Simulated scan of single mutants.
Amino acid sequence: MINAIFFDLSGVLYDDDTLLPGALETLAALRAKNYTLRFLTNTATKSREQIVAKLQNLGIELSPTELFTAPDAAQAYVKQQRLTPFALVHPSIQPLFAVSGAPNCVVLGDAREELNYHNLNKAFRLLVQGCPLLVIGDNKYFPEGRELSLDAGPFAHALQWAADCKVRVFGKPSADFFNQVVATTEFAPSKCLMVGDDVLGDVGGARDAGLQAVLVGTGKYQPGDAAKLTPAATKVDSVADILHLL
């Protein structure tokens, strides 16, 4: 029996600035049936406030406590450990990591054009000195219009390989991230269902953390992704099919 449902955002509930068919109806029906809902995103190009505003503009109502973002998780860790990061992140979330002083860690996210040789080399030099690598979301790619674009994951893996260092991932597919969200519910991981469009980051990560998982055939879904699912996970055409699945 499922008691809580976790939703990825982009590619599951909306694409760019357009709601996907059935998204609002599905969320409303689930709330009416008293399911606990959570919204998880690795989006690292918008602040938390921008994400909430976008959801509300699309007609998706949620409590701030229902939203969990990878940048927030990374910022909380940096504060907890009293680190001073070299933050190679998007300008919209740069203020989250604005700490003065000599950097003693590297925070890497979807920095777009800032992921250039100069900045990556600066990060590399810090890592070979022993600074830890903190990564906001370990995704390979994301949909951008009708095409796919590289996410932060490939750059993180390149730095990890070159500097021969360990990496700490914040956001999906980190089991710590899923466990953090599960802990805000009253239920065991096996009673929670993750709905996502990333066969590895969403579905694979959730399964590794003990959750149930569903892959939707929208967003970044690619032909052949369904073949990568374990028998414990399943695939549906879109978020509109979640109610029928339950």
Rank of each mutant, 00 (worst) to 15 (best):
H244Q: 11
A233D: 15
D72K: 12
K166R: 14
G59N: 06
S238W: 13
T218Q: 10
A98E: 13
D151C: 08
L229P: 07
F170Y: 08
T184I: 11
H157W: 10
L27Y: 03
I93F: 09
F68T: 01
A23G: 03
Q81A: 15
Q160S: 04
K140E: 15
D164H: 02
S238K: 12
T69Y: 02
V236T: 08
V169G: 04
K54Y: 12
V135A: 00
G137H: 04
S10P: 11
Q180H: 14
E113D: 14
L200F: 13
F39K: 10
G205M: 03
T26Q: 03
G219W: 01
L20M: 07
T43G: 12
L134S: 00
L58N: 05
Q129D: 12
L27S: 08
G11P: 09
L9V: 06
K220L: 01
S92P: 07
R112E: 06
P189Q: 08
A4V: 02
L83T: 01
P95C: 08
Q75L: 02
Q94M: 14
T43S: 10
D16F: 09
V89T: 07
V195M: 04
G109E: 06
F124P: 00
R125H: 12
R207Y: 03
L246C: 15
L37E: 13
F187K: 05
L19E: 10
F86G: 03
K235L: 07
